[in-house]
Amino acid sequence: HTCEKCSTSIANQAVRIQEGRYRHPGCYTCADCGLNLKMRGHFWVGDELYCEKHAR
């Protein structure tokens, strides 16, 4: 898989955010504040991922 955020190959663990879309665990972050979304879930606003606070 290729990380959709940093565009590099994912060798080990990948986070599947949608069918066919993956990120490194470290790239699974809010587009606004950079908070890691692991164990928090994500919210779509347009084509970007946000934490609950910044999705509003």
Rank of each mutant, 00 (worst) to 15 (best):
His1Lys: 15
His1Gly: 06
His1Asp: 05
His1Arg: 07
His1Glu: 15
His1Gln: 01
Thr2Asn: 14
Thr2Phe: 06
Cys3His: 04
Cys3Thr: 02
Cys3Ile: 03
Cys3Gln: 01
Cys3Leu: 00
Cys3Val: 00
Glu4Ser: 12
Glu4Gln: 08
Glu4Val: 08
Lys5Arg: 15
Cys6Lys: 06
Cys6Glu: 04
Cys6Phe: 02
Ser7Asp: 02
Ser7Ile: 11
Ser7Tyr: 02
Ser7Cys: 12
Thr8Ile: 04
Thr8Trp: 10
Thr8Pro: 03
Ser9Gln: 10
Ser9Ile: 01
Ile10Thr: 08
Ile10Leu: 04
Ile10Phe: 02
Ile10Arg: 03
Ile10Trp: 03
Ala11Gln: 06
Ala11Leu: 01
Ala11His: 10
Asn12Trp: 01
Asn12Thr: 14
Asn12Ser: 11
Gln13Lys: 03
Ala14Lys: 04
Ala14Asp: 05
Ala14Glu: 14
Ala14Trp: 08
Ala14Gly: 06
Ala14Gln: 05
Val15Leu: 06
Val15Asn: 03
Val15Ala: 02
Arg16Asn: 14
Arg16Cys: 15
Ile17Glu: 05
Ile17Ala: 05
Gln18Asn: 06
Gln18Glu: 11
Gln18Cys: 10
Gln18Trp: 06
Gln18Val: 12
Glu19Val: 03
Glu19Trp: 02
Glu19Thr: 10
Glu19Ser: 07
Glu19Pro: 07
Gly20Cys: 05
Gly20Asn: 12
Gly20Ser: 05
Gly20Leu: 03
Arg21Gly: 06
Arg21Phe: 11
Arg21Cys: 10
Arg21Asp: 07
Arg21Val: 13
Tyr22Val: 05
Tyr22Glu: 11
Tyr22Lys: 05
Arg23Gln: 03
Arg23Ile: 01
Arg23Lys: 05
Arg23Pro: 09
Arg23Asp: 03
His24Ala: 05
His24Asn: 05
Pro25Val: 08
Pro25Gly: 10
Gly26Ile: 13
Gly26Val: 13
Gly26Gln: 15
Gly26Pro: 11
Gly26Lys: 14
Cys27Met: 02
Cys27Gly: 03
Cys27Phe: 00
Tyr28Glu: 02
Tyr28Asn: 05
Tyr28Thr: 13
Tyr28Cys: 07
Thr29Glu: 03
Thr29Pro: 01
Thr29Phe: 07
Cys30Arg: 00
Cys30Ser: 00
Cys30Asn: 01
Cys30Gly: 02
Cys30Glu: 00
Cys30Val: 01
Ala31Gly: 12
Ala31Ser: 09
Ala31Arg: 12
Asp32Cys: 07
Asp32Gln: 05
Asp32Thr: 13
Cys33Pro: 01
Cys33Lys: 01
Cys33Glu: 00
Cys33His: 01
Gly34His: 14
Gly34Met: 11
Gly34Lys: 13
Gly34Phe: 07
Leu35Pro: 03
Leu35Phe: 14
Leu35Arg: 07
Asn36Ser: 11
Asn36Phe: 07
Asn36Thr: 09
Leu37Pro: 03
Leu37Asn: 03
Leu37Lys: 03
Lys38Ile: 01
Lys38Gln: 06
Lys38Arg: 04
Met39Tyr: 11
Met39Cys: 08
Met39Glu: 15
Met39Leu: 09
Met39Ser: 13
Arg40Asn: 15
Gly41Lys: 08
Gly41Ala: 08
Gly41Glu: 07
Gly41Arg: 07
His42Glu: 14
His42Lys: 09
His42Asn: 08
His42Cys: 11
Phe43Gln: 06
Phe43Lys: 04
Trp44Ala: 14
Trp44Leu: 13
Trp44His: 14
Val45Pro: 04
Val45Thr: 02
Val45Glu: 12
Val45Asp: 04
Val45Asn: 08
Val45Cys: 06
Gly46Leu: 09
Gly46Trp: 04
Gly46Val: 07
Gly46Lys: 12
Gly46Ile: 07
Gly46Arg: 11
Asp47His: 08
Asp47Phe: 05
Asp47Lys: 12
Asp47Met: 10
Glu48Phe: 10
Glu48Gln: 05
Glu48Thr: 06
Leu49Val: 10
Leu49Phe: 05
Leu49Lys: 01
Leu49Asp: 04
Tyr50Met: 13
Tyr50Trp: 08
Tyr50Pro: 00
Tyr50Asp: 10
Cys51Gln: 01
Cys51Glu: 07
Cys51Leu: 00
Cys51Lys: 00
Cys51Phe: 00
Cys51Pro: 02
Glu52Asp: 12
Glu52Ile: 03
Glu52Arg: 06
Glu52Ser: 05
Glu52Leu: 08
Lys53Met: 08
Lys53Pro: 10
Lys53Trp: 14
Lys53Ile: 06
Lys53His: 15
Lys53Asn: 10
His54Val: 02
His54Ala: 00
His54Gln: 01
His54Leu: 02
His54Trp: 00
Ala55His: 02
Ala55Trp: 13
Ala55Gln: 12
Ala55Val: 08
Ala55Ser: 14
Arg56Val: 12
Arg56Tyr: 14
Arg56Leu: 15
